[in-house]
């Protein structure tokens, strides 16, 4: 087997722009590569994406492998897996990083299977062990009740996906120099077995959860879809996005698109107001990156109070109307 060297990240684009996760991957990738004294490269798959190479370099990359092909216009698991595996076989990186996103969740295990690498999903920390030079991968397990530290001793590449918003991007530096290498996709459409025949966008009204500075989230204790309106009302007053727990979504109080948590959206607002939700670890996994958490719950022992800065132990139906009025008044000042 050829010697595996270097760190590679798999870039992700949206509307012909680098996704936040790509810059986060470049940020942590740079640190790992520097610790190893090796190169940080990017696998950039897409259609007419050449112009974006320089931006990856500005965000930390030494080298960008560009696979520009109409077939790669948008993410398709079959085509992307095949192309990524081809490129990895040629470049033989020692470490391969992807985002824990729709794309990474799908692509990373398939790629690991094809390359015979080892893989840790949804990591919140990565570092190089100074002695062994192996990548230490930290990931929440049991919904976030515990953290596990994993290594891949012999298999290569050592692969990981990173949880969004857990790694810092670098300051963009347009003067950074790097190399751009064009690669052949080497596949045609016959590779695609699972075909996307339609994409349905379920636009959330108002502010996007991932971008919101303030989020107001309701849990099962809200009781019904009608009762959920008051959660939205508080959100409106605070120019906030509205979130929900899985229990609330399961029971039809809110659409699944606004589920926050380990298997929903990962958010990191300045303020997170958690109403009538217990604070299950799987829920906290999606919002523990919030700067300030406020909880309203009838149960003084609810776990959500353990992670909150401010709390009120009372029925939300009594708390929200005066809270909304007071916030309105204060915001108008």
């Amino acid at each position: 087997m050829a010697e595996c060297k270097g760190v590679m990240i798999c870039a992700e684009l949206a509307d012909k722009k680098l996704c936040a996760i790509t810059t986060e991957l470049l940020g942590i990738g740079r640190i790992l590569a520097d610790d190893l004294g090796e190169e940080l490269s990017v696998l950039l798959m897409g259609s007419e994406v050449n112009a974006l190479s320089q931006e990856h370099i500005a965000c930390g990359a030494d080298k960008v492998y560009v696979v520009d092909d109409p077939l790669l216009e948008s993410f398709n698991s079959d085509a992307y897996t095949e192309v990524a595996a081809n490129i990895c076989r040629q470049v033989s990186p020692s470490i391969m990083l992807l985002g824990q996103t729709d794309m990474g969740r799908d692509l990373a295990p398939r790629l690991a299977a094809r390359l015979g690498g080892g893989l840790a999903m949804d990591c919140i920390d990565l570092s190089i062990d100074p002695e062994t030079k192996l990548m230490l991968q930290t990931r929440p397990v049991f919904g976030g009740n515990a953290n596990a530290e994993m290594i891949t001793r012999n298999a290569r590449p050592q692969m990981a996906t990173i949880r969004p918003k857990t790694m810092s991007a670098l300051e963009k530096d347009d003067s950074r120099q790097g190399e751009v290498v064009a690669m052949e996709a080497g596949v045609d459409s016959s590779i695609i077995k699972a075909r996307i025949i339609e994409t349905v966008q379920e636009e959330i009204e108002g502010i996007k959860l991932e971008e919101a500075e303030v989020i107001v989230t309701g849990g099962r204790g809200i009781g019904s879809a009608e009762a959920f309106e008051i959660v939205r009302e508080l959100a409106n007053v605070l120019s906030a996005a509205t979130g929900a727990t899985r229990a609330a979504c399961d029971e039809g109080m809110a659409p699944a698109t606004i589920q926050v948590g380990q298997t929903g959206k990962i958010v990191g607002p300045n303020l997170y107001i958690a109403i009538a939700l217990s604070g299950a670890v799987q829920h906290l996994a999606g919002c523990s990156g919030s700067k300030h958490i406020v909880a309203i719950n009838t149960d003084p022992d609810a776990h959500i109070f353990k992670v909150s800065e401010f709390g009120i132990v009372a029925d939300y139906k009594e708390v929200l109307p005066p809270l909304i009025e007071k916030c309105k008044a204060l915001m108008a000042e």
């Binding site: 515990a146 596990a148 530290e149 109070f305 992670v307 909150s308 009120i312």
Partner: peptide, 20 residues
Amino acid sequence: CTELIKLYVPVRDIQCQIIE
């Protein structure tokens, strides 16, 4: 392929101010 080398419970040390 992958090996678990450490398992721990992360500490959360937030003091909640209950408003009463």
